[in-house]
Write a protein that binds this DNA or RNA. Structure first.
Ligand SMILES: [Mn+2]
Ligand SMILES: [Mn+2]
Ligand SMILES: [Zn+2]
Ligand SMILES: [Zn+2]
Lengths: 143, 143
DNA sequence: AATGCAAATGAGAATGATTATCGTTCGCGG
DNA sequence: CCGCGAACGATAATCATTCTCATTTGCATT
Protein backbone atom coordinates (compact mmCIF):
# COMPACT_ATOMS: atom_id res chain seq x y z
CA UNK A 1 0.00 0.00 0.00
CA UNK A 2 1.25 3.48 -0.85
CA UNK A 3 0.75 7.02 0.27
CA UNK A 4 -2.82 8.27 0.31
CA UNK A 5 -3.55 11.56 -1.41
CA UNK A 6 -6.30 13.65 0.19
CA UNK A 7 -5.56 16.54 -2.18
CA UNK A 8 -7.13 14.78 -5.15
CA UNK A 9 -10.36 14.35 -3.26
CA UNK A 10 -10.47 17.87 -1.91
CA UNK A 11 -9.83 19.36 -5.32
CA UNK A 12 -12.70 17.24 -6.61
CA UNK A 13 -15.01 18.73 -4.00
CA UNK A 14 -15.15 15.52 -1.97
CA UNK A 15 -14.19 15.39 1.66
CA UNK A 16 -11.32 13.09 2.49
CA UNK A 17 -12.65 9.95 4.10
CA UNK A 18 -10.95 6.63 4.68
CA UNK A 19 -13.06 4.56 2.24
CA UNK A 20 -12.60 7.15 -0.50
CA UNK A 21 -8.86 7.24 -0.01
CA UNK A 22 -8.67 3.45 -0.11
CA UNK A 23 -10.66 3.21 -3.32
CA UNK A 24 -8.69 5.95 -5.03
CA UNK A 25 -5.43 4.37 -3.96
CA UNK A 26 -6.53 1.06 -5.40
CA UNK A 27 -7.07 2.64 -8.80
CA UNK A 28 -3.87 4.67 -8.64
CA UNK A 29 -1.51 2.07 -7.23
CA UNK A 30 -3.27 -1.27 -7.69
CA UNK A 31 -2.47 -3.78 -10.39
CA UNK A 32 -5.84 -3.92 -12.12
CA UNK A 33 -6.72 -0.99 -14.32
CA UNK A 34 -10.37 -1.91 -15.03
CA UNK A 35 -12.38 -2.96 -11.98
CA UNK A 36 -16.02 -3.60 -11.08
CA UNK A 37 -17.57 -2.60 -7.75
CA UNK A 38 -17.30 -6.19 -6.61
CA UNK A 39 -13.62 -6.30 -7.65
CA UNK A 40 -12.89 -3.19 -5.59
CA UNK A 41 -14.87 -4.53 -2.65
CA UNK A 42 -13.01 -7.86 -2.64
CA UNK A 43 -9.57 -6.29 -3.04
CA UNK A 44 -10.17 -3.88 -0.16
CA UNK A 45 -11.51 -6.71 1.95
CA UNK A 46 -8.48 -8.88 1.14
CA UNK A 47 -6.16 -6.09 2.20
CA UNK A 48 -7.86 -6.13 5.59
CA UNK A 49 -9.99 -3.02 5.17
CA UNK A 50 -13.57 -3.10 6.36
CA UNK A 51 -15.58 -1.13 3.80
CA UNK A 52 -19.21 -1.75 3.01
CA UNK A 53 -20.23 -2.81 -0.47
CA UNK A 54 -22.80 0.00 -0.52
CA UNK A 55 -20.03 2.47 0.20
CA UNK A 56 -17.98 1.11 -2.68
CA UNK A 57 -20.91 1.62 -5.04
CA UNK A 58 -21.52 5.12 -3.66
CA UNK A 59 -17.88 6.13 -3.92
CA UNK A 60 -17.45 4.79 -7.45
CA UNK A 61 -20.46 6.76 -8.63
CA UNK A 62 -19.25 9.89 -6.86
CA UNK A 63 -15.81 9.52 -8.40
CA UNK A 64 -17.39 9.09 -11.80
CA UNK A 65 -19.45 12.26 -11.35
CA UNK A 66 -16.38 14.10 -10.07
CA UNK A 67 -14.49 13.06 -13.19
CA UNK A 68 -11.94 10.96 -11.31
CA UNK A 69 -13.14 7.68 -12.82
CA UNK A 70 -14.77 6.61 -16.07
CA UNK A 71 -17.50 3.97 -16.15
CA UNK A 72 -17.80 1.38 -18.90
CA UNK A 73 -20.50 -1.19 -19.56
CA UNK A 74 -18.81 -4.22 -21.01
CA UNK A 75 -20.81 -7.38 -21.65
CA UNK A 76 -21.51 -9.32 -18.49
CA UNK A 77 -23.95 -6.98 -16.80
CA UNK A 78 -21.62 -5.24 -14.37
CA UNK A 79 -20.15 -1.75 -14.64
CA UNK A 80 -16.38 -1.47 -14.89
CA UNK A 81 -14.41 1.59 -13.79
CA UNK A 82 -10.96 2.95 -14.56
CA UNK A 83 -8.95 6.02 -13.68
CA UNK A 84 -9.82 9.02 -15.84
CA UNK A 85 -6.55 10.15 -17.29
CA UNK A 86 -8.05 12.66 -19.63
CA UNK A 87 -7.57 10.82 -22.87
CA UNK A 88 -10.51 8.97 -24.37
CA UNK A 89 -10.02 5.45 -25.63
CA UNK A 90 -12.04 2.38 -26.53
CA UNK A 91 -11.58 -1.27 -25.57
CA UNK A 92 -11.07 -4.72 -27.03
CA UNK A 93 -11.95 -7.51 -24.61
CA UNK A 94 -11.00 -11.18 -24.72
CA UNK A 95 -14.09 -13.34 -24.26
CA UNK A 96 -11.95 -16.22 -23.00
CA UNK A 97 -9.71 -14.71 -20.33
CA UNK A 98 -11.15 -11.23 -19.85
CA UNK A 99 -7.93 -9.52 -20.91
CA UNK A 100 -8.57 -5.91 -21.96
CA UNK A 101 -6.54 -3.84 -24.41
CA UNK A 102 -7.13 -0.15 -24.98
CA UNK A 103 -6.98 1.66 -28.29
CA UNK A 104 -7.67 5.02 -29.83
CA UNK A 105 -8.30 5.46 -33.52
CA UNK A 106 -8.72 8.95 -34.88
CA UNK A 107 -10.27 7.66 -38.10
CA UNK A 108 -13.04 5.95 -36.13
CA UNK A 109 -13.53 9.02 -33.98
CA UNK A 110 -13.88 11.36 -36.93
CA UNK A 111 -16.20 9.02 -38.82
CA UNK A 112 -18.46 9.01 -35.77
CA UNK A 113 -18.58 12.79 -35.74
CA UNK A 114 -19.45 12.88 -39.41
CA UNK A 115 -22.17 10.24 -39.05
CA UNK A 116 -23.77 12.04 -36.12
CA UNK A 117 -23.74 15.32 -38.02
CA UNK A 118 -25.33 13.73 -41.08
CA UNK A 119 -28.08 12.22 -38.96
CA UNK A 120 -28.69 15.49 -37.12
CA UNK A 121 -27.36 14.44 -33.74
CA UNK A 122 -25.18 16.28 -31.25
CA UNK A 123 -22.81 13.69 -29.73
CA UNK A 124 -22.60 13.46 -25.95
CA UNK A 125 -20.57 10.28 -25.81
CA UNK A 126 -20.09 6.94 -27.45
CA UNK A 127 -19.39 3.38 -26.46
CA UNK A 128 -17.27 1.05 -28.58
CA UNK A 129 -16.08 -2.38 -27.56
CA UNK A 130 -14.65 -5.16 -29.70
CA UNK A 131 -15.05 -8.69 -28.34
CA UNK A 132 -12.89 -11.58 -29.44
CA UNK A 133 -10.14 -13.99 -28.50
CA UNK A 134 -6.69 -12.77 -27.54
CA UNK A 135 -3.45 -14.60 -28.21
CA UNK A 136 -1.86 -14.50 -24.79
CA UNK A 137 -0.11 -17.82 -24.23
CA UNK A 138 -1.88 -18.40 -20.95
CA UNK A 139 -5.29 -17.61 -22.41
CA UNK A 140 -7.55 -20.68 -22.06
CA UNK A 141 -8.94 -20.37 -25.58
CA UNK A 142 -5.63 -21.75 -26.88
CA UNK A 143 -6.39 -25.32 -25.86
CA UNK B 1 -52.91 -7.84 -36.31
CA UNK B 2 -51.69 -9.61 -39.44
CA UNK B 3 -51.15 -13.10 -40.68
CA UNK B 4 -48.97 -15.31 -38.52
CA UNK B 5 -46.16 -17.20 -40.19
CA UNK B 6 -45.40 -20.62 -38.70
CA UNK B 7 -42.93 -21.33 -41.51
CA UNK B 8 -40.32 -18.94 -40.15
CA UNK B 9 -40.37 -20.73 -36.81
CA UNK B 10 -40.25 -24.22 -38.27
CA UNK B 11 -37.35 -23.33 -40.52
CA UNK B 12 -35.58 -22.01 -37.45
CA UNK B 13 -36.03 -25.33 -35.69
CA UNK B 14 -38.62 -23.97 -33.27
CA UNK B 15 -42.06 -25.45 -32.95
CA UNK B 16 -44.89 -23.12 -33.79
CA UNK B 17 -46.52 -21.99 -30.56
CA UNK B 18 -48.92 -19.13 -29.96
CA UNK B 19 -46.57 -16.97 -27.86
CA UNK B 20 -43.76 -17.37 -30.39
CA UNK B 21 -46.02 -16.42 -33.28
CA UNK B 22 -47.26 -13.35 -31.43
CA UNK B 23 -43.76 -12.14 -30.59
CA UNK B 24 -42.48 -12.70 -34.10
CA UNK B 25 -45.50 -10.91 -35.53
CA UNK B 26 -44.81 -7.92 -33.28
CA UNK B 27 -41.32 -7.57 -34.66
CA UNK B 28 -42.41 -8.14 -38.27
CA UNK B 29 -45.56 -6.04 -38.32
CA UNK B 30 -45.38 -3.82 -35.26
CA UNK B 31 -44.43 -0.16 -35.29
CA UNK B 32 -41.38 -0.31 -33.04
CA UNK B 33 -38.22 -1.73 -34.52
CA UNK B 34 -36.13 -1.88 -31.31
CA UNK B 35 -37.94 -3.38 -28.31
CA UNK B 36 -37.06 -4.60 -24.81
CA UNK B 37 -38.64 -7.66 -23.20
CA UNK B 38 -40.84 -5.37 -21.15
CA UNK B 39 -41.88 -3.48 -24.31
CA UNK B 40 -42.89 -6.73 -25.99
CA UNK B 41 -44.70 -7.92 -22.88
CA UNK B 42 -46.70 -4.70 -22.57
CA UNK B 43 -47.60 -4.54 -26.25
CA UNK B 44 -48.84 -8.13 -26.27
CA UNK B 45 -50.77 -7.50 -23.10
CA UNK B 46 -52.35 -4.36 -24.56
CA UNK B 47 -53.44 -6.31 -27.62
CA UNK B 48 -55.34 -8.64 -25.29
CA UNK B 49 -52.94 -11.56 -25.40
CA UNK B 50 -52.11 -13.36 -22.19
CA UNK B 51 -48.41 -14.21 -22.35
CA UNK B 52 -46.18 -14.55 -19.34
CA UNK B 53 -43.20 -12.26 -18.93
CA UNK B 54 -40.97 -15.31 -18.42
CA UNK B 55 -42.14 -16.65 -21.75
CA UNK B 56 -41.31 -13.37 -23.45
CA UNK B 57 -37.77 -13.52 -22.07
CA UNK B 58 -37.43 -17.17 -23.08
CA UNK B 59 -38.73 -16.58 -26.59
CA UNK B 60 -36.55 -13.53 -27.17
CA UNK B 61 -33.46 -15.48 -26.17
CA UNK B 62 -34.47 -18.42 -28.34
CA UNK B 63 -35.07 -16.13 -31.30
CA UNK B 64 -31.69 -14.56 -30.76
CA UNK B 65 -30.01 -17.96 -30.70
CA UNK B 66 -31.96 -19.02 -33.78
CA UNK B 67 -30.74 -15.91 -35.57
CA UNK B 68 -34.20 -14.39 -35.95
CA UNK B 69 -33.44 -11.46 -33.65
CA UNK B 70 -30.36 -9.49 -32.66
CA UNK B 71 -29.80 -8.32 -29.09
CA UNK B 72 -28.28 -4.95 -28.21
CA UNK B 73 -27.24 -3.53 -24.85
CA UNK B 74 -27.90 0.18 -24.99
CA UNK B 75 -27.44 2.27 -21.88
CA UNK B 76 -30.24 1.87 -19.39
CA UNK B 77 -29.62 -1.66 -18.24
CA UNK B 78 -32.16 -3.52 -20.36
CA UNK B 79 -31.55 -5.59 -23.49
CA UNK B 80 -33.14 -4.37 -26.71
CA UNK B 81 -34.00 -6.65 -29.63
CA UNK B 82 -34.64 -6.11 -33.31
CA UNK B 83 -35.37 -8.28 -36.32
CA UNK B 84 -32.23 -9.78 -37.82
CA UNK B 85 -32.29 -8.76 -41.45
CA UNK B 86 -28.83 -10.03 -42.22
CA UNK B 87 -27.04 -6.72 -42.48
CA UNK B 88 -24.96 -5.54 -39.53
CA UNK B 89 -25.35 -1.95 -38.41
CA UNK B 90 -24.63 0.21 -35.40
CA UNK B 91 -26.83 2.74 -33.58
CA UNK B 92 -27.04 6.35 -32.57
CA UNK B 93 -29.48 6.97 -29.72
CA UNK B 94 -31.08 10.24 -28.57
CA UNK B 95 -30.64 10.62 -24.82
CA UNK B 96 -33.66 12.95 -24.68
CA UNK B 97 -36.41 11.12 -26.54
CA UNK B 98 -34.94 7.66 -27.09
CA UNK B 99 -35.10 7.97 -30.88
CA UNK B 100 -32.76 5.49 -32.57
CA UNK B 101 -31.10 5.82 -35.97
CA UNK B 102 -29.12 3.05 -37.59
CA UNK B 103 -25.92 3.42 -39.58
CA UNK B 104 -23.24 1.36 -41.21
CA UNK B 105 -19.80 2.75 -41.92
CA UNK B 106 -17.34 0.57 -43.79
CA UNK B 107 -14.41 2.76 -42.73
CA UNK B 108 -15.21 2.14 -39.07
CA UNK B 109 -15.69 -1.56 -39.70
CA UNK B 110 -12.36 -1.96 -41.47
CA UNK B 111 -10.48 0.09 -38.87
CA UNK B 112 -11.81 -2.24 -36.22
CA UNK B 113 -10.54 -5.27 -38.09
CA UNK B 114 -7.12 -3.69 -38.44
CA UNK B 115 -6.95 -2.72 -34.77
CA UNK B 116 -7.92 -6.20 -33.62
CA UNK B 117 -5.31 -7.75 -35.87
CA UNK B 118 -2.59 -5.41 -34.62
CA UNK B 119 -3.45 -6.27 -31.01
CA UNK B 120 -3.52 -9.99 -31.75
CA UNK B 121 -7.25 -10.52 -31.34
CA UNK B 122 -9.71 -12.56 -33.38
CA UNK B 123 -12.96 -10.55 -33.52
CA UNK B 124 -16.19 -12.29 -32.54
CA UNK B 125 -18.37 -9.21 -32.48
CA UNK B 126 -18.41 -5.57 -31.56
CA UNK B 127 -20.75 -3.06 -29.98
CA UNK B 128 -20.84 0.58 -31.03
CA UNK B 129 -23.39 3.13 -29.92
CA UNK B 130 -23.28 6.89 -30.18
CA UNK B 131 -25.35 8.81 -27.62
CA UNK B 132 -26.48 12.38 -28.13
CA UNK B 133 -29.40 14.70 -28.81
CA UNK B 134 -31.45 14.40 -31.96
CA UNK B 135 -33.10 17.27 -33.81
CA UNK B 136 -36.61 15.93 -34.17
CA UNK B 137 -38.98 18.83 -33.68
CA UNK B 138 -40.96 16.99 -31.05
CA UNK B 139 -37.84 15.98 -29.15
CA UNK B 140 -38.00 17.43 -25.60
CA UNK B 141 -34.37 18.56 -25.62
CA UNK B 142 -35.40 21.44 -27.92
CA UNK B 143 -36.99 23.48 -25.13
C1' DA C 1 -61.52 -36.99 -33.92
C1' DA C 2 -59.56 -39.03 -29.50
C1' DT C 3 -54.97 -40.23 -27.09
C1' DG C 4 -50.16 -39.66 -25.34
C1' DC C 5 -46.27 -37.28 -24.20
C1' DA C 6 -42.48 -34.33 -24.49
C1' DA C 7 -41.97 -29.53 -25.06
C1' DA C 8 -43.68 -25.06 -23.88
C1' DT C 9 -46.10 -22.02 -20.92
C1' DG C 10 -47.37 -19.02 -16.88
C1' DA C 11 -47.16 -17.70 -12.02
C1' DG C 12 -44.28 -16.79 -8.89
C1' DA C 13 -39.86 -17.65 -6.42
C1' DA C 14 -34.96 -16.90 -6.88
C1' DT C 15 -30.88 -14.47 -8.43
C1' DG C 16 -27.37 -10.93 -9.32
C1' DA C 17 -26.29 -6.16 -9.64
C1' DT C 18 -27.26 -1.87 -7.89
C1' DT C 19 -29.69 1.55 -4.98
C1' DA C 20 -32.33 3.20 -0.89
C1' DT C 21 -33.01 3.37 4.13
C1' DC C 22 -31.56 4.37 8.61
C1' DG C 23 -29.26 4.26 12.93
C1' DT C 24 -24.28 4.92 14.04
C1' DT C 25 -19.71 6.93 13.26
C1' DC C 26 -16.45 10.18 11.38
C1' DG C 27 -14.21 14.49 9.48
C1' DC C 28 -13.49 18.94 10.34
C1' DG C 29 -14.53 23.92 11.56
C1' DG C 30 -14.96 26.44 15.72
C1' DC D 1 -12.20 19.13 22.78
C1' DC D 2 -17.40 19.81 20.80
C1' DG D 3 -21.03 19.66 17.68
C1' DC D 4 -23.18 18.54 13.61
C1' DG D 5 -23.93 17.42 9.06
C1' DA D 6 -21.77 14.31 5.86
C1' DA D 7 -20.42 9.66 5.21
C1' DC D 8 -20.59 4.86 6.59
C1' DG D 9 -22.05 -0.08 7.12
C1' DA D 10 -25.56 -3.38 7.43
C1' DT D 11 -29.37 -4.70 5.39
C1' DA D 12 -33.79 -4.13 3.01
C1' DA D 13 -35.56 -2.88 -1.42
C1' DT D 14 -35.59 -2.54 -6.44
C1' DC D 15 -34.90 -3.95 -11.29
C1' DA D 16 -33.96 -6.90 -14.94
C1' DT D 17 -33.59 -11.48 -15.84
C1' DT D 18 -33.60 -16.47 -14.91
C1' DC D 19 -35.26 -20.60 -12.60
C1' DT D 20 -38.81 -23.91 -10.76
C1' DC D 21 -42.58 -26.57 -11.32
C1' DA D 22 -47.35 -27.69 -11.89
C1' DT D 23 -50.40 -27.20 -15.88
C1' DT D 24 -51.33 -26.71 -20.78
C1' DT D 25 -50.40 -27.28 -25.62
C1' DG D 26 -48.50 -28.75 -30.19
C1' DC D 27 -48.35 -32.45 -32.85
C1' DA D 28 -47.59 -37.12 -34.15
C1' DT D 29 -50.12 -41.38 -33.82
C1' DT D 30 -54.00 -44.27 -33.27
MN1 LIG E 1 -9.59 1.70 -20.42
MN1 LIG F 1 -31.01 -1.60 -35.35
ZN1 LIG G 1 -7.57 -14.13 -23.71
ZN1 LIG H 1 -34.54 13.16 -29.47
Amino acid sequence: MNELEPEHLKSAGLKSTLPRLKVLDLFKNGQERHMSAEDVYQLLRESGDNVGLATVYRVLTQFEQAGLLVRHNFEGGKSVFELNEGTHHDHIVCMQCGHVEEFYDSAIESRQKKIAAELGFTIHEHSLQIYGDCTKTKCPHRR
